[in-house]
Design a binder for these strands. Structure first.
Lengths: 144, 144
DNA sequence: TCAATATGGTGGCAATTGCCACTTCATTAC
DNA sequence: GTAATGAAGTGGCAATTGCCACCATATTGA
């Protein structure tokens, strides 16, 4: 079946959904879902973040972050502590449990990327990655 | 805020969610949601399709297509008729109402694409589009 | 021919997400 | 200092999606 008349919107949708299914399956062994894994990754990357910072970096609604972070606290992957300077905000930090799965989660992401780019040359892969990042940053910058 | 330590998985997620929000807003004037618009586009592209063909082309679960198609029939954008050769399948065809919005939906998709690639050169835009399509096709081919 | 298997489609349930209204605390303007 | 505005976070609701069990019809194999 040829995929003529295709457009980038459809491609992005397919890549998003499939990569989430892959990541969900890959993370099940750690009792994590894909969105939980993404938050652990970003919290480990930055060591300390507020919920609002996560919201901005992932460009997700703040209520979505609140729900996922609550669950991650319950399951012991992160710790929340009230910020001393601003009592409205939480400082979010990874626990040892998070640091333990961190390298495996990065590996899972890598597997996803390799899977969807397996027909690309190394140059194409690097260029695609660069342009994806450029587009995502452009998109984030658009909203105020 | 610098977006260091970023990865393509996160970029794809952001692009998917934002483009859907944009398309939803753009399609509201036609009383359509983004997923409904995508199905109208593909049905108009191919003139006649079964639900299963839509499922394969969009790489969505068949029950999702069934639900959306049912709604589109109720709102008069498509017609379902039982296939003569296989009574289990429907032939799905666009109505005049679908053909009327079709060019505008294509325009909306174009606006989305322009928005997220506005910092790219024409060459980069074309290359990104090509690689997106390649990755999406690779992804679809992976599942059996 | 007839049983076993495969395929297209439907309905139910749970998870993720987006939007909105709301609370609490900070900051700004007067 | 106090009122008005803004920002961080929460909870509720609806829409989309994925998975599973199921039904009806085709196809295959003995």
């Amino acid at each position: 079946m040829p995929y003529i008349m295709d457009n980038p919107f459809k491609s992005i949708s397919i890549l998003y959904r499939k990569s989430h299914i892959w990541l969900n399956n890959g993370c099940a062994q750690y009792d994590l879902t894909a969105p939980q894994a993404v938050i652990i990754l970003i919290v480990c990357d930055f060591k300390t973040l507020t919920q609002d910072e996560i919201t901005k970096r992932l460009s997700l609604d703040k209520s979505v972050i609140a729900k996922t972070v609550t669950k991650l606290e319950e399951t012991g992957f992160i710790i929340r502590s009230t910020n001393a300077k601003d009592k409205r905000t939480y400082d979010i930090r990874p626990t040892d449990k998070a640091w333990k799965v961190y390298p495996f989660l990065k590996e899972e992401l890598d597997i996803c990327f390799q899977r969807m780019t397996q027909r690309m040359t190394d140059d194409e892969r690097a260029e695609w990655k660069r342009l994806l990042l450029l587009a995502a940053e452009t998109t984030i910058a658009l909203e105020d």
